[in-house]
Design a protein around this nucleic acid. Structure first.
Lengths: 186, 186
DNA sequence: GCCACCCTATTCAAATTTGAATATAATAAG
DNA sequence: CTTATTATATTCAAATTTGAATAGGGTGGC
């Protein structure tokens, strides 16, 4: 659903062909907020076209490349966009963090391995925190606040995650994951 | 994948039938960390059984109810579990927050509506923060630290989300979402 | 005493996502 | 000059998720 929303949002600015959408997404670091899978993108575009929420404006043919089909958002599409936005805000979809599950069970397996991987994750997350902050800073005077909130929010979420990972790592190193009784000290 | 991991983890403790797994999940508030969809659960159980990662121990037949098939984890299943845990820790899967997308586009639609919905979300998130903290506190002396980290982590993530939502709400109320140039003050 | 709703337990079709395959051009590196 | 990588553009089968259907039993309220 959020792929559809994204497509509608970008077509609002100007007409584009699917591949162009991916370029704009990367340019704006939107691929951090939504998983960019080409398959899903083309699928979503087809579905939107089927429902007349977008329509083909032009097909650029070329002998050596696949044809480019340029799409435009319709009025029906604009309505759908409003619906989707409101729907997404409404459903208080828990953050289903895939790591949570793995970590809960990690005490059953080789702690050395868990330790190494966690260290890797911590390093990666540190990079993400820095990158997210940089992206935020660079965009302060460029994008509207709505977009800026995403960037700052992403930074904060990453930071929260980093702190969490570090606490986990400490306990794995101390071989304490199976202990009971003591509270977490942040 | 995390559904498979969950099933293997619970079967490690004792043999169970699929429906029983859902009960244990709810009991332990695991349904907060992973989306509990009956369809996916039964699908994952079937796949695990196909790959001999789990096996049926017993089928309890009954005239008035569907049969219950009780499963047990195999040695192959234990190996898979280790693999899955390590794999999940490894892939630094960005948190793809569905709200991010919606919020980025919300400035195009009726701000009154966005305001109301955000207020609802804030209320809900406040409840979640409280609930998460309560769950954490109640489990301090009951569960191993690995599980406790999840609970405390969940609390912190919810709190981060709450602060973010409140800042968004402020800006929506002030009709500032389309403004540019000023930094986010946390 | 009956109506509405929740619990037990599973299945299924339809929607969606994943991951890889396809083909060619341009650019860079050695 | 040749080879490797990156960019252009889309498609597809297979895996997975979703959301609803099924179906009988128990329970609490009016």
């Amino acid at each position: 659903m959020s792929m559809k929303l994204l497509i509608l949002g970008l077509l609002l600015e100007r007409d584009m062909h699917p591949y162009e959408i991916t370029l704009v997404m990367k340019e704006r670091t939107m691929d951090q907020f939504i998983k960019l899978q080409m398959g899903s993108l083309y699928y979503a575009v087809d579905k939107l076209a089927e429902g007349s929420h977008i329509e083909a404006v032009e097909v650029i043919r070329s002998t050596d490349r696949p044809d480019k089909t340029i799409y435009r958002i319709t009025d029906k599409g604009k309505e759908l966009m409003e619906q989707l936005i409101l729907q997404q805000i409404k459903k208080s979809d828990q953050l289903h963090h895939p790591l949570y599950m793995a970590l809960a069970l990690s005490r059953y397996i080789d702690q050395e391995k868990v330790e190494r991987l966690l260290e890797e994750r911590i390093r990666e997350t540190e990079h993400q925190v820095n990158f997210a902050y940089q992206v935020y800073e660079e965009h302060i005077s460029i994008v509207p606040r709505s977009a800026l909130h995403l960037m700052y929010g992403r930074y904060e979420h990453c930071l929260t995650e980093l702190k969490w990972l570090k606490r986990l790592h400490e306990d794995v190193v101390a071989r304490r994951m199976s202990d009971k009784g003591s509270p977490i000290i942040p």
